[in-house]
Amino acid sequence: MTESLAITKFSDLANPTRFLGLAARILPWMAGATAILFAIGLYLSFTTEGDYQQGMTVRIMYVHVPAAWLSMMCYSVMAVSAIGTLVWRHPLADVSHKAAAPLGAAFTLIALATGSLWGKPMWGTWWVWDARLTSVFVLFLMYLGLIALNRAMDDPGRAARLSAVLILVGFVNIPIIKFSVDWWNTLHQPASVIRMDGPTIDQEFLWPLLFMAIAFTTLFFTLHVMAMRNEIWRRRITAQRRMAARMAGRTPGSEA
């Protein structure tokens, strides 16, 4: 009963007008929550002591790790949306994965850039072609490819179906990124927060990291809802312009 109610509520969101109404109501709250979480996260990040080995460079972790998590989470959101496009034909599913691609690319770029800036003082190099770094770079290229594909095709329906197939094929890269540090001998350290036996990271670093991770996640969802709303408006504009062109072609002069 509860499950069917949840499905009904999810189906209700298939109506773009209803989605726009919901977005207008929740966006101010989401933006406010993001600002507060960033304020707390940044305060904690800059008041904690440095690591006994890394010193203050551990602070790079508070922006690098959340960006890296989001780069994978965004792609997972896109994969669920791709299933929504191909299986359920949910009208907002293709809007969702089209809107998420630039956000994913931006967060992956942050993860790559901050990782490089952390690698130089700690590893002595800006970049190595190890499994983790290379697979994240491939993810960045996949985001760029999906953005290019969506922009290259005029028909949004056709672009959405093609993108959905590519997203699902590319999803194989996500477990490769996650487990690359376990499967191969890499310069990148293994997971220290999301582990079967619990986090191995010290509490002093865990709290700022968690707050920054939640802040980045709420930022992503805020921007995603905003970008979805923009995409709905863009499609309405296209439809209205098409309607105006048809009405112009149906003037009495042209019919005669």
């Binding site: 960006a67 942050i110 901050t114």
Partner: peptide
């Protein structure tokens, strides 16, 4: 090390603000 920390936060701030600005202006 301060340079690497400052650059990391600067890159993050620039990319995040550009992204937010782009979505908002769009």
């Amino acid at each position: 090390h301060t340079f690497y920390i400052a650059m990391s936060y600067a890159v993050t701030a620039i990319v995040t603000l550009c992204l937010t600005g782009w979505v908002w202006l769009d």
